[in-house]
Amino acid sequence: MRRKNILIAAVALILLSLGLMLEQFWLKVATEALIMMLLAISFSLLYGHTGLLSFGQGAYFGVGAYGFALAFTRLHLDFPLCLLVGVVSAGLWAAATGYLCVRLAGIYFAIMTVVVAQSTFFIIFQWYSLTGGDNGIQGLVPPDVISGTRGYYYFALAIVSAAFYAYYRLINSPFGLSLRCIRENMIRAKFVGIDEHKHRLKVFILSGLFAGLAGVLFAPFTRSVVPQMADWISSGKAVFMGILGGASYLLGPLVGAAAWVFLDAFVSGFTVHWPLIIGILVFVIVFFMPGGLMGLVHSYRVRAKARKRGSSGLLSDGTET
């Protein structure tokens, strides 16, 4: 337990000092990574913890961003209030569409979420009078205190840390445990009296809120929103990041999002063949490491512990210790 506290303190120190040490461009990339962590968390909640493969988290990312942008440019609300409007609208949209989605399972659930995401994209794209169509909405400049690169980094860091804490508490709560129960064995979950539909809808809305929060933070970060934020390619990114890091591990989405964003920024900084390089990397990671990056770390730790105890690493491979 003490070791854990020291670790947390160290990570916090590193993250805080990054804001002072990193040069401006990489600080922007770090901010993007922080925001994307929320999107990856929203995917992991559904896939890693409940066993629902969502290919449509982009919809709530986009709705959150547009909720913010519309409140900001049309209603001229205060900045914090705009953030709230964005998150709430994402949550409401998740509740409405989730009601239809959670009735399905497996591949059908996945395809339903794609259909929802594409429809959301389509509505945003077509509703010219409200959303401005494909040109999107620009000029979303945050208040002066956080409009600079460093200010926005700390702002995002604060919100993402709080959200991460909420996520941590959530998956360790009785509710989180019953989600994993649904994932592992639906029939047994029903036996012990878990209302599976209700639980799934709840977690769907929660993950919509996380995605919406990501969208809400992303809009003032790029100072613009576009319909593409809601389409299936944007949703695909959430899937990439979630599985890359290892969706069922606590730190998986964070590691996955950071790896993805930094790789993307790094690779597309020097070559136009980034799809090839990223494609090969993702392919190799998923093909050879089913648990993602955190799965890799986990298996190393398990083996190290086994070696310490002097037993064969093979025996305890893959089991939780």
Partner: peptide, 26 residues
């Protein structure tokens, strides 16, 4: 990958989309 989880299957074939598309462009 026939026996792998749905998510892995989709992701691996999706990664192949990136690879094949870029190779086509090359």
């Amino acid at each position: 990958i026939y026996e792998r989880e749905l998510g892995d299957q989709l992701l691996i074939t999706f990664a192949m989309v990136y690879i094949l598309d870029d190779v086509t462009k090359i």
